[in-house]
């Protein structure tokens, strides 16, 4: 079982993840239309790049935009969650040991206690986001089961990984569950709303170009995001 989930299934998941993301990028860019979107992407490239970078950077860092600053707690937990989601799996010692075994390469790794802490932070952040969805009427109304499912997909590898790492009873089962959950996560990224993994950048760049090229970027200082 272990050989299968860390072998062919892992290959398949990574293939879907990478190819899926590339397809997302290609389809997004191909579907841009200067006339329909009313943005001259090709004519005013320098303004477009400036607008796109501003639009991404102000939002990429916590409290960079008005909206982030207006919602300090949400911003805190959202950034902590994303930080944990992104960096824990990449720099985890266990993952890099496996990488070394299989392909002979490995990256810099996080101290194990830090990785453990990040895992807890991800789980707590997801809990916060679930509670927020239930507590705030303006969020509750627009929340669907799909939104909870995505949170579950994102947090599952962390819960199972945490249990496996701390040698919960049935270690082997948790380990296999962890690997499977991680693979589901990888596959879900290009195929679901989690595609904001890449579409966040593309969509932000697009609106940034809109503002940078057409909606005042050539006249003012650029939108104060």
């Amino acid at each position: 079982m272990y050989e299968f989930v860390t072998g062919p299934l892992a290959w398949l998941s990574f293939a879907i993840f990478f190819i899926g993301l590339i397809v997302r990028i290609v389809l997004y860019i191909k579907g841009l239309d200067w006339k329909m979107d009313r943005v001259t992407y090709r004519e005013n490239v320098s303004y477009g790049i400036k607008g796109a970078l501003r639009s991404i950077l102000f939002w990429l860092f916590p409290y960079g935009s008005h909206s982030w600053r207006n919602n300090p707690w949400f911003t805190l937990w959202v950034f902590l969650m994303h930080f944990g989601l992104l960096f824990t799996p990449i720099f985890l010692l266990g993952h890099n040991v496996l990488l070394k075994e299989r392909w002979g390469i490995s990256l810099w790794t996080l101290p194990e206690a830090v990785a453990d802490g990040l895992t807890v932070i991800v789980i707590v952040s997801v809990l916060f986001l679930i509670l927020r969805r239930i507590a705030l009427p303006e969020v509750r109304l627009i929340t669907t089961l799909y939104d909870y499912l995505l949170l579950a997909i994102a947090v599952a590898p962390f819960i199972t990984g945490f249990l496996a790492y701390h040698r919960a009873p049935d270690y082997y089962t948790w380990l296999i569950a962890h690997i499977l959950c991680g693979e589901i996560f990888l596959i879900a990224i290009p195929l679901t709303k989690l595609s904001h993994f890449i579409l966040f950048f593309l969509s932000r760049a697009q609106l940034g170009m809109d503002y940078g090229i057409k909606r005042g970027g050539m006249k003012g200082k650029g939108l104060a995001w």
Binding site: K30, G31, F74, R133, T143, T144, L202
Partner: peptide, 18 residues
């Protein structure tokens, strides 16, 4: 196309627009 489609698709229902 792209831009409208993506806007509708990736909205994560966070409610910051409220």
């Amino acid at each position: 196309k792209s831009r409208l489609k993506t806007w509708l698709e990736i909205c994560s229902h966070c409610g910051l627009c409220a």
